[in-house]
């Protein structure tokens, strides 16, 4: 199965991180990978746009980063494991991410999780 075949088998509401997305998001994910270093997190937080430029992010990617818009970050090639290092800088938990992506409040998102027990 090649990357294109995987992409075609869509699962609604799910962004499969296949070869096509990995190419598109390489620089964005590379930047997020750099956030494993506390020093880099500090540099990013001081001048986010300049930091994005240093990693050659596209205009579209920079906007998604500065807006902390998770669905757009996924659409421009971000991988959730790497994006978590970006959103973590702003103290966002995975419940915050879930609430934002599903258009719910945090309490509504938690209630949805609990409703599946």
């Amino acid at each position: 199965m090649n990357a294109a075949t995987v992409s075609q088998q869509a699962i609604p509401g799910t962004y499969l991180f296949d070869g096509r997305m990995a190419m598109k998001g390489y620089n964005l994910n590379r930047m997020c990978y750099s956030f494993n270093s506390a020093d880099n997190r500090k540099k990013f937080k001081a001048f986010p746009e300049a930091y994005c430029h240093a990693y050659h992010l596209t205009r579209e990617q920079i906007h998604a980063v500065t807006d902390l818009d998770v669905l757009r970050l996924l659409q421009v090639g971000g991988n959730i494991y790497y994006l978590a290092k970006l959103t973590g800088i702003y103290g966002m938990t995975v419940q915050d991410l879930g609430a934002q992506q599903t258009g719910r409040s945090i309490d509504e998102f938690r209630a949805r999780l609990e409703s599946q027990a």
Binding site: P12, V70, A84, Q101, R112, A117
Partner: peptide, 13 residues
Amino acid sequence: HQLDGERAGFINK
């Protein structure tokens, strides 16, 4: 579990 996408929060007991 699913962390990303509009389907975030999906669980299948």
